[in-house]
Simulated assay, not measured.
Amino acid sequence: MTAHTPDATGRVTLTMIASEAGVSVSTVSKVLNGRSDVSTDTKERVEGVMDQLGYQRRPARRRGAVVDLVLNELDSLWSVEIIRGVDEVLHGAGASMVLSAVHGRSSDTREWIDQLAARRSNGAILVVSDLTQQQRKRLTALDVPFVLLDPVGNVDALVPTVGATNWAGAVSATEHLIALGHTRIAHLAGPRQVLCSRARADGFRATMERAGLPMPDGWVVHGEFNDSSGRAETARLLDGLGASGEEPPTAVFAASDLQALGAFEVLRDRGYSIPTDISVVGFDDLPVARWTHPPLTTVRQPLFDMATVAANALLRIIDGEPADQLRLELATQLVVRGSTAPPRATGRPGSRLDI
């Protein structure tokens, strides 16, 4: 193992422990939370490194704490994974969680901050469409520490954030399709203003350019991270190609699983077989991805682990310690299932439906 020592402030960080133990930050977080999905050998190795480096757990101030979890919406499968992860950490620490949904509206965000001030919350985990500089200043004035989970726009360098390797995930999805032999690949992108959406689109474009593959106008279609947007984007893509007389793509990379499910529906209605006529890749690996027909090839974004890492980071701040690391990105992983295959000779709809 490489020798690591506490930083200039005398702190031992989760990143140091992870590096010394040869595991990820999320694995260290799992050990801290007593998760059962960590092998005994890994748990013992991580705990040994903690003892070796003198890591101190400080649960006193966090017990009884109230933490706000603020999301755009509460009824999506994506949000459920975030809620589960935060709840596990807070429950184990003896803290309480208050859920709020702002639905992307700034008025709801202002109302939530007023409510947070009234109940004197100890901290907040924010998963919101937008948090203005004015709102950040108000949270600071209220002395409420916060962590941004999967941040949307550019954030202050001193604000702790937890995200995923979105660019690398998009690269792996696109490389998978190219390796299968696809050269006509479309991208159902997310909102233009959202950081993770831009990173996924950039990863797609970079991989296509590196492979020398064309990206005709209209083959990157922007929308939202939901199934209705996936339906609309897919219809817009196919209608645009039909009007120009172009062949449809042989593969589609969607920026979210829900967009991919919307694409499934439109492709089914128009007589395309997946993956015989068109392969489809999603992004997130929500639980539903393995139950689609065919099961969805997708990029696993560790939403649950991202939530636990964000919650642990916030609890450390509540305990009076600086954030372990201001910028954390957890690794994504390509999960290959039945919705991708080599392209057929033509992109025209086949004679049978496999959706």
Rank of each mutant, 00 (worst) to 15 (best):
residue 1 M to C: 09
residue 2 T to M: 12
residue 10 G to F: 10
residue 13 T to E: 03
residue 17 I to N: 00
residue 18 A to Y: 06
residue 19 S to K: 11
residue 19 S to C: 06
residue 20 E to C: 10
residue 29 S to K: 00
residue 30 K to F: 05
residue 33 N to L: 12
residue 34 G to S: 07
residue 49 V to T: 04
residue 52 Q to F: 03
residue 57 R to Q: 14
residue 65 A to P: 08
residue 70 V to N: 01
residue 70 V to M: 13
residue 71 L to Q: 00
residue 76 S to P: 14
residue 79 S to E: 10
residue 80 V to Q: 15
residue 86 V to G: 00
residue 86 V to I: 13
residue 94 G to Y: 11
residue 94 G to I: 05
residue 95 A to L: 09
residue 97 M to G: 03
residue 100 S to C: 15
residue 106 S to W: 06
residue 108 D to I: 00
residue 108 D to W: 07
residue 110 R to A: 09
residue 112 W to K: 04
residue 120 R to Q: 14
residue 131 L to I: 15
residue 142 L to T: 05
residue 144 V to S: 11
residue 157 A to R: 14
residue 168 A to G: 03
residue 168 A to N: 09
residue 171 V to I: 13
residue 182 H to V: 01
residue 193 Q to S: 12
residue 199 A to R: 05
residue 206 A to S: 15
residue 206 A to P: 06
residue 208 M to F: 12
residue 214 P to M: 10
residue 218 G to C: 14
residue 223 G to E: 03
residue 224 E to Y: 07
residue 225 F to D: 02
residue 227 D to H: 10
residue 228 S to C: 05
residue 229 S to V: 02
residue 230 G to H: 02
residue 231 R to W: 01
residue 232 A to H: 14
residue 234 T to H: 03
residue 238 L to A: 06
residue 242 G to M: 08
residue 246 E to W: 06
residue 255 A to T: 02
residue 263 A to E: 04
residue 266 V to R: 08
residue 268 R to G: 02
residue 269 D to I: 01
residue 276 T to S: 15
residue 280 V to R: 01
residue 286 L to H: 03
residue 295 P to V: 04
residue 304 F to W: 15
residue 306 M to E: 13
residue 313 A to P: 01
residue 315 L to I: 05
residue 317 I to R: 11
residue 318 I to A: 00
residue 319 D to E: 12
residue 327 R to V: 12
residue 331 A to F: 06
residue 334 L to N: 02
residue 335 V to W: 08
residue 337 R to L: 08
residue 345 A to I: 15
residue 346 T to K: 05
residue 352 R to W: 08
residue 354 D to F: 09
